[in-house]
Computed example of a mutant assay.
Amino acid sequence: MRVAPRLTLPHGTLPLPTFLPDATQGVVKGLDAVDVEACGIDAVVMNGYHLMQRPGSTTVAALGGLHQMSGWRRPIITDSGGFQAYSLIRANPKSGTLSERGITFQPEGADRKYQLTPEKSIQLQIGYGADVVICLDDPTHVDDPPERQRESVTRTIAWARRCKSEYTRLVAEKRLPPERRPLIFGVIQGGGFNDLRRECAEALLEIGFDGFGFGGWPLDAHGKLLHEIVAYVRALVPAALPLHA
Rank of each mutant, 00 (worst) to 15 (best):
R2N: 11
P17Q: 12
L20T: 02
L20V: 15
T24A: 09
T24W: 09
V28W: 09
A38V: 02
V45M: 13
V45D: 01
N47C: 12
G56A: 11
A61S: 14
L66F: 03
L66K: 03
R73K: 15
I76F: 14
I77D: 00
I77A: 02
D79Q: 06
G82H: 04
F83Y: 15
A85W: 00
Y86D: 01
S87I: 00
I89Q: 06
R90L: 08
A91F: 04
S95L: 14
L98G: 00
P107N: 04
P107G: 03
G109C: 05
R112K: 13
L116A: 05
T117E: 08
E119P: 00
E119G: 01
L124W: 14
G129H: 08
V132Q: 02
D144M: 14
R150F: 04
R150W: 06
R150C: 02
S152F: 01
K164Y: 08
E166K: 15
V171K: 06
G186S: 04
A201R: 05
D210Y: 11
G211N: 12
F212Q: 11
G213N: 07
P218T: 12
D220F: 11
E228W: 06
E228P: 00
A231P: 00
V233E: 11
L236F: 08
L236I: 07
V237D: 08
A239M: 02
P242A: 09
